[in-house]
Design a protein around this nucleic acid. Sequence first.
DNA 1: TAGATTGTTAATCGATTAACAATC
DNA 2: TAGATTGTTAATCGATTAACAATC
Lengths: 213, 213
Amino acid sequence: MEKNSETIPDIIVKRLPVYFKHLKKLKKSTKEYISSYELAELTGFSSSLIRKDLSYFGNFGRKSYGYDIYCLFQELNIIMGFNYTKKLIIVGAGHLGQALIYNKGYQERGYELKAVFDKNPKLIGLYINEFEILNIEQMLKFVKKEEIDIAALTVPQGAAQKITNLLIEAGIKGIWDFTEVPLKVPEDVLLEEQHINEGLCKLSCKINQNIEE
Amino acid sequence: MEKNSETIPDIIVKRLPVYFKHLKKLKKSTKEYISSYELAELTGFSSSLIRKDLSYFGNFGRKSYGYDIYCLFQELNIIMGFNYTKKLIIVGAGHLGQALIYNKGYQERGYELKAVFDKNPKLIGLYINEFEILNIEQMLKFVKKEEIDIAALTVPQGAAQKITNLLIEAGIKGIWDFTEVPLKVPEDVLLEEQHINEGLCKLSCKINQNIEE
DNA sequence: TAGATTGTTAATCGATTAACAATC
DNA sequence: TAGATTGTTAATCGATTAACAATC
């Protein structure tokens, strides 16, 4: 799985969900076109940067009108691959894992939740929002057979690297990592760290500065 | 609450939790010192960048030895304000909100969970992990009286801005935002967007590129 | 037509890296 | 002492912004 020669720069990828979020909201209004200046207002990015970002993917704008909201939204969906089905599993059915079962964001992004795994005998067999919690022993086989793309990792810290190795062995393409552990993965496996407590770190850091001043 | 003239650049703040994560792990080993070269190996940042980041806060290193792991960890705690108590509430006791009640990351970062609020009469009065879910009508008064610093926002999309306005009115210092809504907050209120589905966006985007190639 | 706004180039700004003197 | 590694400066790299011709 070599990297595409035309890989979208990370710095742009980072901003795509922001455009997506705002266009999704705008799509509900009666507004048809939006200018880079208005988008700048909403996103906090400069209009220049927005035009540059979008022009990376093609000429979506219409001079003197701006960008067609509906079309741009569709384009973003294609760019981010939301029109493509990606198979997801959740590994670890603790409190966070269970909350992820109820997450409503999968469908519009092309994700299909396929299974939930845990090691705890008290959880195995339970149904949460119509998903049966499966024994983690079945995971490797399942991922291989069903060609799962992404695993949400919500296991305890001690198990994180071991389970990760298993997922890699099974041929997982990406890990959506909620553990706090510095995981090691080979280059061809995508690792998206969703360490929620980092948000608390940043907030604490900034509050602290305000106090000191 | 004016910005400090010596505000830590965001680009450094972003990397502090990464150093924290690795030092926390290293602290458990018998290793006493770590060089910027070894830290580079672990974090993926260049050794040069690490030395520059750390030197921003002082001279923590010891020439020809590296950085004392324990001391550096302590320094990071002070820099990020973890030695300071910050009062937290959770607003919205749905699946995600409840999962956040069980989050183990508060204490070591100096956070104290003070209360959980919801609007749903079926949830109000329930105890989750020894926290009673309180009526959201009491929130404004509570935040004012208890001088709450941070609110974790896990309410439905439709309620997000309204509740945010209420929190601002009550004098909240920062919002840890789990909604998917583009929230508007005044400049002096910190907004940390913890939109977990953004992780799914990035993963989808990158997987899509690998496929196309 | 006049005004608005894109797409793109060149200029600027800021972040990262390379290099090395200082020194333990 | 010789080797290791910091802290810092200068050089480089890359990202953002300003500006503007093109054009709807």
